[in-house]
């Protein structure tokens, strides 16, 4: 990498004091994000474990509960997130090319899509409140035989999608931060790793949804 050699003696401003060069700093940051994502896999893994157990115990209740979810809104949200992954990838590409305007444009589009996802999600949540599908004392399920295990389904639904939404909100915070860093010139062609690792995070959050959508919305549906 000729640029790195060139900059070594000038000590580029983005280089932290304890790294030898930008290359080392970049690989450390990337590895750090991957390790963090491994942690995240285990974090959601505990929930998937609980889901698997109860899905196995109460298949009828899970299928009936799943039919109460709005598949149109869920599918729309899936599409929204997949497109946001594309725009995020384009932002990363722009960062590697050092094209500031493009980075900012794609970051903003990604953020709009993220907000759209959260908006649709809150419409769904409102609907659950209105239909007494929020677990707790006021929980009501049409089929009284499934009243109890259906409550487990909706408990898992809220914890899983709630934690996913929380990760989306953190992601939006990251995007805002990256937008500021791009605008004030911190992000350069040589120092694009913050955008890259934010992208890794964003893709991970999307992938979690790619698992949640079929597990929660598509049980026993036939097209």
């Amino acid at each position: 990498m000729p640029e790195a050699v060139l900059h070594e003696h000038h000590h580029p401003p983005a280089l932290a004091h304890h790294f030898e060069n930008l290359e080392e700093q970049h690989t450390a940051a990337t590895l750090g994000m991957w390790v963090f994502l491994v942690t995240e896999v285990l974090f959601f893994g505990g929930l998937f474990m609980a889901y698997t157990l109860y899905r196995h115990w109460y298949p009828a209740a899970f299928m009936a509960s799943s039919h109460e979810l709005d598949i149109t809104l869920g599918a729309t949200n899936t599409a929204v997130l997949i497109v946001s992954s594309l725009t995020m990838a384009l932002a990363v590409h722009a960062a590697q090319e050092g094209e500031r305007g493009k980075i900012m444009f794609f970051l903003v589009v990604t953020m709009i899509l993220g907000l759209a996802f959260l908006g649709i999600k809150s419409v769904e949540y409102m609907d659950k409140f209105e239909h007494h599908h929020v677990p707790g004392a006021s929980f009501h399920f049409d089929d009284p035989a499934l009243q109890q295990p259906a409550q487990i389904f909706f408990s898992l639904y809220f914890v899983m999608t709630g934690l996913h939404a929380l990760h989306m909100i953190v992601g939006l915070g990251l995007m805002t931060w990256m937008f500021i860093w791009t605008k004030n010139g911190t992000i350069t062609k040589d120092y694009s790793s913050p955008i890259e690792i934010s992208g890794l995070y964003w893709h991970f959050v999307d992938i979690v949804w790619i698992f949640l959508f079929p597990l929660l919305y598509l049980l026993g549906r036939h097209i």
Binding site: V35, V38, T39, E40, L42, F43, F44, G45, G46, L47, A50, P135, G136, A137, Q148, Q151, I152, S155, L156, F158, V159, L163
Partner: peptide, 24 residues
């Protein structure tokens, strides 16, 4: 990094169950 997130999410479920009467 592999173990701690599992107890973390387990405590989330305990807190959700205690605070919001979720049933897990």
């Amino acid at each position: 990094i592999l173990g701690t997130p599992v107890v973390a999410v387990t405590l989330v479920m305990v807190v959700a169950e205690r605070a919001f009467h979720f049933g897990i």
